[in-house]
Computed example of a mutant assay.
Amino acid sequence: MTSNETGTHGAVLEDTPPEKDRPLVELRGAGKSYGNIRALHGVDLKVFPNQVTCVLGDNGAGKSTLIKIVSGLHQHTEGEFLVDGEPVRFSTPREALDKGIATVYQDLAVVPLMPVWRNFFLGSEMTKGPWPVRRLDIEKMKKTADEELRNMGIVLDDMEQPIGTLSGGQRQCVAIARAVYFGARVLILDEPTAALGVKQSGVVLKYIAAAREKGLGVIFITHNPHHAYMVGDHFSVLRLGTMELSASRSEVSLEELTNHMAGGTELASLKHELSQVRGVDVEELPEAGDLTAPVATSSEGKS
Rank of each mutant, 00 (worst) to 15 (best):
T65G: 08
L66C: 06
L66M: 10
I67W: 00
K68R: 14
K68E: 06
K68S: 09
I69P: 03
I69L: 15
V70E: 01
S71G: 11
G72D: 04
G72N: 08
L73Y: 14
L73W: 06
Q75K: 13
E78N: 02
L82D: 00
V83C: 06
V83R: 06
D84G: 00
E86P: 00
E86A: 15
E86K: 15
P87A: 09
R89Y: 09
R89M: 07
F90A: 05
F90N: 05
F90K: 00
F90T: 07
S91A: 14
S91F: 06
T92G: 02
P93C: 08
P93Q: 02
P93E: 06
R94L: 14
A96L: 08
L97V: 09
D98G: 11
D98P: 02
K99W: 08
K99S: 12
G100D: 05
G100H: 01
I101R: 06
A102E: 04
A102W: 01
T103Y: 03
Y105P: 05
Y105F: 15
D107R: 07
D107G: 11
L108D: 05
A109V: 06
V110Y: 08
P112T: 08
L113T: 15
M114H: 08
V116I: 15
W117C: 09
N119D: 09
N119F: 05
N119L: 08
F120C: 04
F121V: 04
F121T: 00
L122Q: 03
G123T: 04
S124A: 13
E125Q: 05
E125W: 05
E125G: 03
M126T: 04
M126L: 13
T127K: 12
T127I: 14
K128S: 10
G129C: 09
P132H: 04
V133P: 04
R134K: 15
R135K: 15
R135I: 12
R135E: 14
L136R: 12
I138L: 13
I138R: 13
I138A: 12
I138M: 13
E139D: 15
T144V: 14
T144C: 04
A145E: 01
A145K: 07
A145W: 02
D146T: 12
E148F: 07
L149I: 11
G153L: 09
I154V: 13
I154M: 14
I154T: 01
V155M: 13
L156T: 02
D158W: 12
D158M: 04
D158F: 10
M159A: 10
E160R: 11
P162I: 08
T165D: 14
T165K: 15
L166W: 01
S167E: 05
G168R: 07
G168N: 00
G169A: 05
Q170Y: 01
Q170P: 03
R171Q: 15
C173N: 10
A175N: 02
A177E: 02
R178P: 05
R178T: 02
R178H: 11
A179N: 09
V180S: 03
F182T: 00
F182V: 00
G183Y: 00
A184T: 11
